[in-house]
């Protein structure tokens, strides 16, 4: 990740970014309600994915239970609004904080573990959260989930909900970018590359890993909360291992070594799921083949591949320059 490699960065990225923002802003005016709904849901999930990539791509850790935080945020919102009749805006703020609280506890025990053992321990915690949601029937309704989440009138229309989500997602993109670019973010990346070297310069590795873990859990919780807002319902599968695995694959598919890679991954998966799902009940295998091709031929993900080819051509250019 050559964030400061200005000579390599695509000078035209500002153009792309502006174009995308424009597209996002005018979409609700031109596309059907179905697509508005889908784009809104995609944006909510992007919050989850971008937040998770803080630990995966930038932190070099692979916790495997983040869906627990995603689902916890979603269920907190649902229960707060329906059972406690909390004001919407209060619930919106408290739900991700609840996930953050869970993550502080889980992370404290987990981040000290290496790679695979971190994955297994967080998977176990994630499954614990999922099973509690599933089985605490009196509170959560179990398999039936909770439906009919009330929203304030101002965001009840698809268009308004879209822009509301866009604002929140945009805010998250900004905040996550600032975190990655901050001294903390840079140290986190250096820790990923060579933990021992960073330890020698005086860094308490576990402390920093915990902070990254908790931050990513906040965004997971916020993503889940927004998903609940968008779909107005919650089900236990929001917290299960499949969701945890899905976010990992999403980041990898788009390119976990790039900032916007996860967004690309989310978009691709959503579109495939939706479009393929219209034609056949058997679409999972297509995704499966995609994953296999990804691992064998495109391990850097889509954005990663683009970035790597740019770096490669930069080198070729330098080499031909030095020859002349």
């Amino acid at each position: 990740m050559i964030q400061a490699a200005q000579s390599i960065r695509n000078k035209g990225w500002l153009l792309w970014a502006s174009g995308l923002v424009l597209l996002l802003v005018i979409s609700p005016l031109v596309v059907s309600e179905f697509w508005i709904y889908m784009l809104t849901d995609i944006m909510a999930y992007c919050i989850f994915a971008l937040g998770y990539n803080i630990v995966l791509g930038y932190g070099g850790m692979m916790p495997f239970g983040h869906a627990g935080f995603y689902g916890a945020g979603a269920y907190f919102l649902a229960l707060a609004l329906i059972m406690v009749r909390m004001p919407f805006w209060a619930a919106l703020v408290l739900a991700p904080l609840f996930s953050t609280f869970l993550a502080a506890i889980i992370g404290f025990f987990s981040v000290r573990r290496r790679a695979f053992y971190l994955a297994i321990l967080t998977l176990a915690f994630g499954q614990l959260i999922w099973s509690v949601i599933l089985k605490w029937y009196s509170l959560t309704g179990g398999e039936n989930g909770i439906t009919g989440i009330p929203l304030p009138d101002v965001i009840s229309t698809p268009g308004n909900l879209y822009f509301f989500t866009l604002a929140i997602a945009g805010g998250c993109v900004y905040v996550i970018y600032k975190i990655i670019d901050s001294p903390f973010g840079r140290v986190l990346q250096a820790m990923r590359e060579n933990p021992q070297r960073m330890e020698f310069t005086g860094v308490n590795l576990d402390q920093h890993r915990l902070i990254a873990f908790v931050i990513s859990a906040f965004f997971a919780g916020l993503g889940g909360t927004m998903h609940a807002v968008v779909t107005r319902c919650v089900f236990p599968d929001l917290a299960d291992w499949a969701k945890s695995g899905e976010v990992v694959i999403t980041c990898m598919l788009g390119g976990m070594n790039t900032f916007f890679g996860p967004v690309i991954g989310v978009a691709v998966l959503f579109f495939m799921h939706t479009i393929l799902g219209r034609f056949t009940a058997y679409w999972a295998w297509i995704l499966g083949v995609l994953f296999i091709l990804l691992v064998l031929f495109l391990p850097d993900g889509i954005m990663g591949y683009i970035q790597q080819s740019r770096i490669a051509s930069w080198f070729q250019q330098r080499e031909s320059e030095s020859r002349t």
Binding site: P183, F184, G185, R186, G202
Partner: peptide
């Protein structure tokens, strides 16, 4: 790290 700024999340890096 040597300047002990590792927990700074706000500064533009």
């Amino acid at each position: 790290s040597c300047h002990k700024q590792t927990l700074d999340l706000l500064t533009k890096g």
